[in-house]
C-alpha cells in the first residue's frame, strides 16, 4: 500500500459497468515523509469517502482491490482504502504537521 494525496475527481459517464456507482479520484503518490515522488498522477476507486486534499492509503494491487470492491471480475486495479489521520516516522510525527496545518 502507498500514501497518496487526492488531487482531483474524475467523472466518466461512459464506462465499464464495473465502475457504475463508484467514485473515481485522481491521486498522486507521496513518500512516507510526504515529499513528492517522481510517480505520475493516476486514478483510484474511492472506498472511504475521501475528498480532494485528503491524505489517503492507496492499494495498488489488483486482486486485493477486486476483493475490496466486491467484484472478482472488475477491471479495477487501484483503490483508496483509508483516509490517513497520522503518520509517525522514526518516532516523529510527520502528519499532521506540528503547525497544525495538514498541508503545510
Amino acid at each position: 500500500m502507498r500514501i497518496a494525496r487526492v488531487v482531483g475527481t474524475v467523472v466518466t459517464p461512459v464506462q465499464h459497468p464495473a465502475y457504475d456507482g463508484r467514485r473515481l479520484l485522481a491521486v498522486r503518490p507521496l513518500s512516507p515523509d510526504l515529499s513528492p515522488t517522481k510517480d505520475r498522477m493516476f486514478t483510484a476507486v474511492d472506498r472511504c469517502q475521501a475528498g480532494v486534499g485528503d491524505l489517503v492509503l492507496l492499494m495498488a494491487e489488483g486482486s486485493s482491490v477486486r476483493d475490496v470492491v466486491g467484484d472478482a471480475d472488475a477491471p479495477i486495479r487501484t483503490a483508496v482504502v483509508g483516509v490517513i489521520d497520522e503518520i509517525t516516522l522514526h518516532g516523529e510525527v510527520v502528519y499532521p504537521s506540528a503547525s497544525g496545518t495538514p498541508d503545510a
Binding site: 482531483g8 475527481t9 464506462q15 464495473a18 498541508d103
Partner: peptide
C-alpha cells in the same frame, strides 16, 4: 479475459476536476 493485453480503455472522461493548490503541494 485471458488474452495478452496490458492496458484497456474502460471509461470516457467527461469531467476532470483538479484542486491546483493540492496538486502543487503533492509535487505534481
Amino acid at each position: 479475459s485471458f488474452v495478452p493485453v496490458d492496458a484497456t480503455i474502460v471509461g470516457h472522461v467527461e469531467e476532470f476536476a483538479v484542486d491546483r493548490d493540492v496538486a502543487a503541494g503533492a509535487g505534481g
